[in-house]
Write a protein that binds this DNA or RNA. Sequence first.
DNA 1: AAGCGTAACGGCACTGCGTGCCATGATTCA
DNA 2: TGAATCATGGCACGCAGTGCCGTTACGCTT
Lengths: 230, 230
Amino acid sequence: MTGATRRGRSAQGRAEVRRDLVAAAVTLFRERGYEDTTVDDIAAAAGVGRRTFFRYFRSKEDAVSPDHETALARAAEVFETAHATEPAAALALRAGETVFDIYTDDPHLSVERYRLTHDVPVLRDRESASIDHYRRLFTRYLRGRFADDPDGDLRAAVIGAAVVAAHNLALRAWLAAGAPEDGMEACRLRFRRVAEMLPGEPAHTNGLHAVTRRLEQAVVRLERTTPPAQ
Amino acid sequence: MTGATRRGRSAQGRAEVRRDLVAAAVTLFRERGYEDTTVDDIAAAAGVGRRTFFRYFRSKEDAVSPDHETALARAAEVFETAHATEPAAALALRAGETVFDIYTDDPHLSVERYRLTHDVPVLRDRESASIDHYRRLFTRYLRGRFADDPDGDLRAAVIGAAVVAAHNLALRAWLAAGAPEDGMEACRLRFRRVAEMLPGEPAHTNGLHAVTRRLEQAVVRLERTTPPAQ
DNA sequence: AAGCGTAACGGCACTGCGTGCCATGATTCA
DNA sequence: TGAATCATGGCACGCAGTGCCGTTACGCTT
């Protein structure tokens, strides 16, 4: 298919060109290296003009992780449409799922992207910045939730950073293992374990110790008067 | 001072040129905007050639935060020379101090830099990547510490991300307030409060939940057979 | 004091990214 | 069939970053 025959394509054609460009970029980056691959090379490999490449991607780096904006928007939608009574932890899980979806769509391509972002410093830094967008989004939401707490800002920052880091750890472990189909459940479980490590509600955390003490005393008191059942 | 008279300067001269370039860059970025300022403009404002700019900074962005490598190296030295018995929290505080030092050296310039990284998306993303270097450094160290723990990786990721986020929150709050001299102590205190929100030793944390569960079950069991005391 | 090696500099040319502009060809709709 | 629209390719341009080279100032030796 020459460039001429591709002119004036439909929306379906656009999606196809986009896929071709991503595939060409990822392949060339891994074969020749990121720095030694020019946009001309990518465009030529995909059978389009150089100018067209920049109509699909804002930059050369964008061809590696072009779905970031979409994923971020979806995650933002989760927070915006969330009911105020939904626990923050559950919300984080739901938002995390929307991000997972982006990767499970095409596991093989996701692994290639992961390797690139792992090996090429420029792409690694770019991904750090992308991930920080999620952190900011989540932290901003939490800050609103914790507005009444005395250390609300700090709690929001800590929990936001921790959850995003855990999400990323789980995701990267899955990708590093080659993104096996039966590994996504372990990935999800791993992500969920972050909840155990988070500081709970301040009143709740402090209360937890108090409750523990109170229960211990109650048990001691009761067991002193009554033999345990069974 | 013309370019000709500046040739063949000493090491002291180099530091001076470096300062001039940073000052020129920060000033111009804030006056005309980052995108509308070229490297030629910066070099001309500092009285040196364009080629010389790139002998002092790897990129245009580097002129805004040129001390990142130094700060990262100092923080790394803290971890490398740390004794194995020093608590991780104390270590984080010490490493955080070395980073604070970079900013307290020239508070006014630090504020200008903060505003730039706050306003210009490109610089913001770049700073996200820089901060992530600290996170990776700290997380890597913690992973070694928690190597024996079952969820060591996750704990390292969570604590590393949380501590760096807290450090950044405190630092940015201080900078946003104009970096007052008497505000650094509040900044330090704020940073230290992160320790209260961190997950403790896994045995401790899990134990707390386990104890709670066990006690609750005991109470239910006992209350089923015996009317509550009092 | 003269000479020499070194270090820093400025200028030039080049590659490559990203963008504005415009003509061209395909598609869709009236 | 003709007009409007959309996507494309090509061209030119500005700017970032790099390699190369000639030049100049400094420090050190003799």
